[in-house]
């Protein structure tokens, strides 16, 4: 029995992209401190194993290999949009970040950084104001932020002009988040972008973005390039956040109104009793 946070130990985490495995050597990675090797066999089937050969659970969904080290209490996160025939699932690759998984998820939810960190793409100075938005609890656990709006000069590779982009953000599992944003061509439908944070250790993560975008003339390669460009703008910001583990105590950091979703995320992690990659509220008082 592991002493690691059962919330993460018994959940599913992506550990490799299937396209990487099909075209290259086995992938060596680490999940919750446990070294893993993932390989494709001659028939194109994927095999994940612990290097100490302790059994694990594995699944394959959305172009990703998923592993549960403990006892899975539920399946891999269901993504209804992945079943829509005009949305190919495009993985962006494994991107290392030297910070805790919850920091990666929180950054993804943050509207305030778009105009600065992603200037000229997902926002721009002086259009940096975060308009009020709404945050609610999801019935199955997690949070949803609605009514988010941001002026974006280059919202995606297909955008030919800046426009006010509508966003919805969801966090359905502690290290899985997604956003729905208006597609620049089909403005009445949404592109869906997921971000999964693979917890390598308490202070190291591997981000696995997953794109479920509508056909707008953009190739998978264009989408990957754009998403990597955006994520690599975030990486140095994330790696300079101190402490690396996310503090959950109210008042440990000073939020402003724009941080409503961050506050709700931290409170939800606190409520479910998350301990890995965070500084729990009671630890601060101790």
């Amino acid at each position: 029995m592991s002493t690691i946070d059962p919330i993460l130990w018994n959940d599913w985490h992506p550990v490799a992209e299937t396209c990487t495995l099909l075209s290259g050597p086995p992938v060596e990675t680490v999940l919750l401190g446990v070294p893993l090797v993932i390989a494709a066999d001659a028939d194109g089937a994927f095999h994940a194993r612990r290097t100490d050969d302790v059994p694990l659970h594995q699944d394959e969904r959305y172009g990703l290999v998923w592993v549960c080290l403990g006892t899975p209490e539920r399946p891999v996160l269901a993504i209804p949009e992945a079943d829509e025939p005009d949305r190919p699932a495009v993985t962006v690759g494994s991107i290392r970040v030297q910070t805790a998984g919850p920091r990666v998820i929180e950054n993804f939810l943050d509207l305030g950084h778009l105009g600065y960190v992603h200037a000229r793409y997902l926002g721009d100075d002086p259009h940096t104001q975060v308009l009020p938005y709404k945050v609610d609890a999801l019935p199955e656990g997690g949070i949803i932020a609605t009514g988010c709006k941001m002026f974006q000069p280059q919202a995606s590779p297909a955008a030919t002009e800046g426009f006010m982009v509508d966003y919805v953000y969801k966090v359905e599992r502690p290290l899985a988040t997604c956003l729905y944003k208006a597609n620049p061509v089909h403005r009445d439908r949404f592109d869906v972008i997921f971000l999964f944070a693979q917890p390598v250790s308490e202070e190291e993560s591997i981000a696995h973005p997953l794109l479920l975008c509508l056909p707008d003339g953009t190739t998978a390669a264009d989408l990957r390039t754009f998403q990597q460009l955006i994520f690599m703008q975030d990486k140095p910001i994330l790696e300079n956040q101190v402490p690396k583990r996310l503090p959950l105590a109210d008042g440990a950091e000073l939020p402003i109104a724009a941080d409503k979703s961050s506050v709700a995320y931290r409170r939800w992690l606190s409520k479910i009793g998350m301990t890995y990659g965070v500084i729990p509220a009671q630890a601060r008082a101790a």
């Binding site: 396209c19 290259g24 993985t91 962006v92 690759g93 494994s94 390669a221 990957r224 390039t225 990597q228």
Partner: peptide, 9 residues
């Protein structure tokens, strides 16, 4: 543009 990762253009 080349997709060198995770593609292998």
């Amino acid at each position: 543009g080349m997709d060198v990762y995770p593609g292998h253009d």
